[in-house]
């Protein structure tokens, strides 16, 4: 029988897009959570501008990461519950490629729109424009790494009852390299050093994840489906 791979790609992207569009409250939760952190942090640190300048960049990063992590473990859970993961397994396209497409769509529709908020929050916290520019670049690249790590953790915890408890514990240690290299870029810019070496290392981490994440995820999804 003739199999049209273009149809598979279109169907997959259409499904993901419509699902995210109809569960827009997930996205709204992320934004509300992020705004809450950004507002509460300066209130607890105090009105001193010096103190705030010192931690402002960290606040934006923590707000972004903490608001993303709860959504990362939901990449597969609804598809697992309503049987779509099985349909993906039966699709002529390799499960690894389907996972990769799912991660990209998740990143593009749910995470990339968050970068719009980086300049807004950064201006509120008095962060210089050059740092804002670099923050957007690092976040766009690093968040893809987060999605790929999220894919691993989400697939590993499929079928377990307390997956929302385990996932953050699994995600955080794996995300440390992204934190270190991402922060390295900003520190280099602040101290007038070349930020590119750290940026390249960040890209390397993401590229490694791009290869290993679909392999591990598909393996653990297959295990979860047979339970």
């Amino acid at each position: 029988m003739k199999i049209n791979f273009k149809n598979i790609l279109i169907a997959l992207i259409e499904k993901e897009f419509k699902s995210y569009l109809r569960s827009i409250n997930n996205f709204m939760n992320m934004i509300v959570f992020m705004i809450a952190i950004i507002i509460l942090f300066p209130l607890t640190v105090g009105p001193s501008e010096e103190k705030l300048t010192l931690v402002s960049n960290a606040i934006v990063w923590i707000a972004l990461i903490v608001s993303i992590i709860p959504t990362l473990d939901k990449i597969y859970i609804s598809d697992f519950k309503n049987g779509w993961l099985e349909q993906y397994y039966y699709s002529p396209l390799l499960l690894e490629i389907i996972i990769l497409i799912k991660c990209f769509v998740f990143w593009f529709f749910l995470i990339i729109p968050l970068t719009i908020f980086i300049p807004i929050f950064s201006i509120l916290l008095n962060i210089p424009f050059l740092i804002i520019f670099w923050n957007i670049i690092i976040f766009a690249i690093g968040s893809l790494g987060f999605c790929l790590i999220g894919s691993i953790c989400s697939s590993l915890t499929l079928g377990t009852k307390s997956n929302n408890l385990i996932s953050p514990l699994l995600i955080l240690p794996l995300a440390i390299p992204i934190f270190i290299f991402g922060n390295g870029v900003v520190e280099a810019v602040k101290s007038n050093y070349d930020p590119l070496p750290n940026l390249y290392l960040l890209i390397t981490v993401c590229l490694i994840l791009l290869i290993i994440s679909p392999l591990i995820s598909s393996y653990s999804i297959k295990i979860a489906l047979t339970k």
């Binding site: 199999i3 049209n4 149809n7 169907a11 609804s78 049987g83 349909q87 699709s91």
Partner: peptide, 25 residues
């Protein structure tokens, strides 16, 4: 148990299922 996505309509579910199989939809 049905393997249809709750967030999609019946038509969308079947259309996407056909697409995933590589069939014309």
């Amino acid at each position: 148990n049905s393997s249809l996505s709750d967030e999609l309509t019946i038509e969308e579910n079947l259309k996407i299922w056909c697409g995933l199989k590589g069939w014309d939809f």
